[in-house]
Computed example of a mutant assay.
Amino acid sequence: MHASAFLRLGFLALLLAVAAPRPAEAADAGQVVQLLDLPRHAALMRHATAPGTGDPDHFRLDDCTTQRNLSEAGRAEARETGRLLRTAGLADAAVLTSRWCRAADTAREMDLGKVEPFPPLDSFFRDRSREDAARRDILARIADRKAGDPPLIMVSHQVNITAVTGIFPASGEIVVVEVLQDGTAAVRARLSP
């Protein structure tokens, strides 16, 4: 094949890649903020980067030194997510969090509103028998959100978000869901850290 034909094919491939639409669920911070104004919508956020998996055998909920915690990069990630959402117009949110330190620290570092613990957001990584109850309670809390309520951000863990959405989120990723009338969650947007 002639060199100019290769160049034309390369240019065509580049043009198609640039013009291709992003996946429907990919969003920017502005889209996320708009969705969070809608009733029955909430942001499920996986805690920011905390190296490792699960928790140490000596884990205690009341002692952060026994838990897997945010790295400095994770803290910076959470602050940047908060900054992006504030810049996009999110003024004050209801922020619910798992009681695990890495989730609560993520919520506080974002600085988007008063942070309150919500036990259904606690990790059930070690106790899968809690999955159905956690999913049900998370969905019920989102379904209760009415027009005019503050935006709802729920900081949790991979297992909880996967149980609600079927998505395996990255550390620090936000998955915006709407709870439908049948009680299931529909993913409306995703925001990568």
Rank of each mutant, 00 (worst) to 15 (best):
G30P: 04
G30Q: 09
Q31L: 11
V32K: 08
V33D: 07
Q34D: 15
Q34M: 07
Q34F: 00
Q34Y: 00
L35R: 02
L35V: 03
L35G: 11
L35W: 07
L36F: 14
L36E: 12
L36N: 06
D37F: 04
D37G: 15
D37T: 14
D37H: 10
L38Q: 15
P39E: 01
R40L: 01
R40I: 07
R40Y: 09
H41W: 06
A42F: 06
A42M: 11
A42C: 07
A43P: 01
A43F: 02
L44N: 09
M45A: 14
M45D: 00
M45P: 03
R46A: 09
H47Y: 05
T49K: 10
T49Y: 15
T49V: 13
P51L: 08
P51V: 08
G52N: 04
G52P: 00
T53V: 12
T53F: 13
G54S: 08
G54F: 00
G54Y: 12
D55H: 09
D57R: 15
D57M: 09
H58A: 12
H58C: 06
H58L: 11
F59T: 11
F59D: 14
F59H: 13
R60E: 13
L61D: 13
D62Q: 08
D63Q: 06
D63L: 00
D63T: 08
C64K: 13
C64T: 08
T65I: 05
T66P: 00
Q67F: 02
Q67Y: 09
Q67S: 05
Q67I: 01
Q67L: 06
Q67R: 01
N69H: 04
L70F: 03
L70H: 01
E72Q: 12
G74W: 03
G74V: 06
G74C: 02
R75Y: 09
R75A: 15
R75C: 11
R75L: 11
R75E: 14
R75N: 09
A76T: 15
E77N: 13
E77W: 02
A78F: 13
A78I: 06
A78G: 03
R79G: 05
R79I: 06
E80A: 15
T81G: 05
T81N: 03
T81A: 10
R83P: 01
R83I: 05
L84S: 08
L84M: 15
L85F: 02
T87L: 10
T87R: 15
T87A: 13
T87C: 00
T87W: 02
A88M: 07
A88F: 00
G89V: 03
L90N: 13
L90Q: 03
L90G: 05
L90H: 10
A91C: 05
A91L: 13
A91D: 13
D92K: 15
A93K: 00
A93L: 08
A94W: 03
A94S: 07
V95D: 02
V95S: 01
V95G: 12
V95F: 10
V95A: 05
L96Q: 06
L96Y: 15
L96M: 11
L96E: 01
L96T: 05
T97V: 03
S98D: 01
